[in-house]
Amino acid sequence: MTTTMDSPLLRVEDLQVHFPGRRGSGGLVRAVDGVGLEIHHGETLGLVGESGCGKSTLGRAIVRAYRPTAGQLHYRRADGGEVDLAGLGERALRPYRQEIRMIFQDPFSSLNPRMTLRDIIGEPLKVNRVARGRALQERVAELLTTVGLRPEHMSRYPHAFSGGQRQRVAIARALALHPRLVIADEAVSALDVSVRAQILNLLARLQADLDLTTLFISHDLSVVRQLCDRVAVMYLGRVVEVAPTEELFARPRHPYTEALLSAVPATHPSRRGGRDRIVLEGDLPDPSDPPPGCPFHTRCPYAVPRCSTERPAAVEVAPGRTAACHFADELHLRGAGQAA
């Protein structure tokens, strides 16, 4: 894992993605509600949180599968210039769609069963007029080799491959246009444990060999700890904590992060069974009707009256670390593997 902390490759600023609420409700679902985030060249940034917190919506907004309601996506081009992807129309977005690619969660549904591997992986090359004919076939063969598959199988269809092999095909397709930023949305969650480890090793190798920058979206903090340089924690459409991975696991600065880490299995046998899992009361609030004040105060064991009226800003609590909690400097929260 490597990271450079110069000008970020992508700077997300006050990003909002809202959807219409249920018919007749008149409200808005605030799936992403003012996210600020930086992704630096060469790093793998983990994005974690409960289902429904807005992780996948944020990923899809970055690749512009969703048009942001408000906010900016400041992307640093290869020439050093900067462009706000959030405000671009489809024609202007076209070159950036080659540079920012997505790997989806389910390899069984993300690949067209009526297309061969040659067509699946080669489609981005043809659509963007990058290669055709023999050059296209050679590039597909190269990509298959890169992800650990045999080039002579490019005439086969997805049903002939296992789940792990299909995810390798999906990764090859995402790499076809030499992207600078890859969004991996729960890319290993549908795989068996042994296959998951193989794909994680592949992603780590590709990140190093191809100088990739990756946003790795996952609900599994054990996986994030293995792969990511930094971690951003998301709750109810907002990022509540960002920190280098090992610092976050050792000493969380937000109560929600502490609760998530309490569910991570201890890596050393002597520490297993020595701590209690923090069970949050209640469900994730409705994103169409978020609570006032701190979004987490309705479930936070440390909440005081101030938390229900005043929304905390994300502030720097240590070099390279931010947290959106009024008491981030005062609370002594448990890290992963620490007893209560």
Rank of each mutant, 00 (worst) to 15 (best):
C53T: 14
Q207A: 07
A141P: 10
G337V: 13
P124K: 11
R118W: 08
V32F: 04
H297Q: 03
D6S: 05
P269V: 06
L143M: 13
G21Y: 03
G87E: 01
I183G: 04
E246Q: 15
D84C: 11
L117M: 14
Q198P: 02
P301W: 01
D192T: 04
A174Q: 13
T44N: 03
H219G: 07
F104A: 00
H268D: 15
L149T: 06
G80R: 11
T309M: 14
L125H: 04
F161I: 09
Q338N: 09
T257P: 11
E310W: 12
L136C: 07
G26A: 05
R30S: 02
R238A: 14
L202M: 09
A232M: 09
T44C: 12
L117P: 11
L248Y: 01
V147H: 12
H41W: 10
R118D: 12
V169K: 09
R97C: 10
A170L: 08
V130H: 02
L261N: 00
A176Q: 04
F19I: 09
R60T: 10
L260P: 13
A266E: 14
A266M: 06
A204R: 01
L206G: 01
L37V: 01
L111R: 05
A324P: 03
H219V: 03
V17W: 02
F296M: 08
R64G: 06
S288T: 08
A92T: 09
I120D: 05
R67N: 10
R272P: 00
T214I: 15
H254S: 12
A313T: 14
P158D: 06
G163A: 01
